[in-house]
Design a protein around this nucleic acid. Structure first.
Lengths: 160, 160
DNA sequence: TATTATTGTTAGGTACGCCTAACTTTGTCA
DNA sequence: TGACAAAGTTAGGCGTACCTAACAATAATA
């Protein structure tokens, strides 16, 4: 009940939060410019977002200063990053999707799935990849299954 | 290259398209009011959306008239509905998520996943539920696996 | 056919999220 | 220290997507 610490965050603000979280993990200090580059937005957009994040007590920030996350900011960012990681892992390790595509899809979908589904998904990945479980090497078997679904691997241009 | 027939549709317009598609399937004729109710938006919002859909040649519409989809509108709506169906089926039949929750999550996520991942997901559902495949009864086995992950089913209120 | 309820539209306003252009602050280096 | 470049901010504008209030059209009923 403090203010609006978590949850009620737009997809856009979640992206900013996640970007700060990642940049911070990679290079220590976080500057507006890094955020802008990382998200592909202009500097004024970053300024606006930082003001909102500060207002929600998710980021520490003063004009012309460095950026860091507050405790709840870090917690929220970690939740978002977790979603991202779980989704990407599912796409790549279970569905066998290309890494780049998985990365992009995870970026978009991470905003629309709640913790219940993400947690289930995480369990599912474990289930499938844990060698002790009955789901053993399911991904590999699924890959074979898919090969059969795509019958014509090189039938282009109808050469004859 | 006609105008902007498909793809470049906002999540919002996709929702309108899908709603029209569904109402049309259920009750034949589609009125603005039905769309408003179905999406939980006000009538003026519907009017605005219909104008845009008409402009993109996805819906047939004149003021005060009935609404229907054009050929490409129906095709686009069917693509969206397919995504919705595949996602929901995955959530329910594979992950074992509650139906209502799955429905809502599918509504949101359907806008952020492309056909590659949706198709893979569809194959995966088939793989898991087809009795001939090696994925046989995976959902059931996964359910058991999950039960073990949640060890304390009734440990609330620390009664002692 | 005149009245009324329902349905739909226009007008106008808000919030978000982005942009460019112009200005300010900060830090560096001669 | 003073000038310059880089980084950051403010100002102002645009598009989307919603809303309420007020008005217009349609349909139903006496």
């Amino acid at each position: 009940m403090t203010e609006s610490n978590a949850a009620n965050l737009s997809a856009s603000l979640e992206d900013y939060l996640e970007a700060i979280f990642n940049i911070s993990a990679e290079s220590g200090s976080v500057r507006s410019k890094d955020i802008a580059r990382s998200l592909g937005v202009s500097m004024p957009s970053v300024t606006g977002a930082l003001r909102l994040l500060k207002q929600k007590e998710l980021a520490n920030y003063r004009p012309y200063g460095c950026v860091s996350l507050t405790g709840s900011g870090r917690a929220a960012a970690a939740r978002i990053a977790r979603k991202h990681g779980v989704l990407k892992a599912f796409f790549v390790d279970v569905l066998g999707v290309d890494k780049d595509l998985a990365q992009k899809a995870a970026c978009k979908a991470e905003h629309s799935l709640g913790p219940e589904i993400i947690t289930r998904l995480l369990y599912f990945i474990e289930f499938v990849t844990t060698s002790g479980s009955d789901g053993r090497d399911l991904a590999g078997r699924f890959e074979l299954f898919c090969k059969n679904k795509l019958p014509a691997p090189k039938a282009r241009k109808r050469d004859r």
